[in-house]
Amino acid sequence: MSTVEPDDRLLRRLAEVRLRFAELDEQLADPAVFEDPARLRDLGQERAALEPAVREGTRLEGLLEELAGAREMAESTDGEMQELALEETRDLERRIEPLVEQVRELLLPRDPMDDRPAVVEIRAGTGGDEAGLFASDLLRLYTRYAERRGWKVELLTLSEGIPGAVKEAVLTVSGQGAFGALRYESGVHRVQRVPETESQGRIHTSAATVAVLPEAEEVDVAIDPGELRIDVFRSSGPGGQSVNTTDSAVRITHLPTGLVVSCQDEKSQHKNKAKAMKVLRSRLFDRALAERDAERAAERRSQVGSGDRSAKIRTYNFPQSRVTDHRIGLSVFNLDAVMDGDLDGFVRALRLAAQEERMEAEG
Rank of each mutant, 00 (worst) to 15 (best):
E88K: 14
D78A: 11
A74D: 05
A68Q: 11
E72M: 08
G62I: 01
T89R: 11
L86W: 05
E87P: 00
G79R: 08
A74S: 12
L60N: 02
M73K: 12
R71L: 12
M81L: 15
S76C: 02
E61A: 05
R90E: 15
E65D: 13
E83M: 11
T77V: 07
A74I: 02
E83V: 14
E65Y: 07
M73A: 14
E75F: 09
E72L: 11
E80V: 13
G79P: 04
R71D: 03
R90W: 13
E87Y: 03
L63K: 13
L64S: 07
L67F: 07
M81V: 15
E88T: 14
T89W: 08
L60Q: 04
E65G: 12
L84F: 12
G79N: 07
L84N: 02
L84H: 06
L86D: 03
S76E: 15
D78E: 15
A74V: 04
E87V: 10
A85G: 04
E66S: 14
G69K: 01
E72S: 12
L86R: 14
E88W: 03
L86V: 10
A70V: 07
L60D: 03
M81S: 09
A85I: 03
A68G: 09
M73L: 15
T77N: 00
L63A: 04
E65S: 13
L64A: 09
E87W: 05
E72V: 03
E80S: 10
D91V: 10
A70L: 09
E65H: 10
G62Q: 06
Q82K: 13
E75Y: 08
E75V: 09
M73P: 01
G69L: 04
A74N: 07
L64K: 06
E83H: 10
E83C: 03
G69V: 00
D78R: 11
L64P: 01
T89Y: 09
E88Y: 00
E88H: 12
L60G: 04
E72F: 11
E80A: 15
D78G: 15
L86M: 14
E83F: 07
E66A: 15
E80Y: 08
G79D: 09
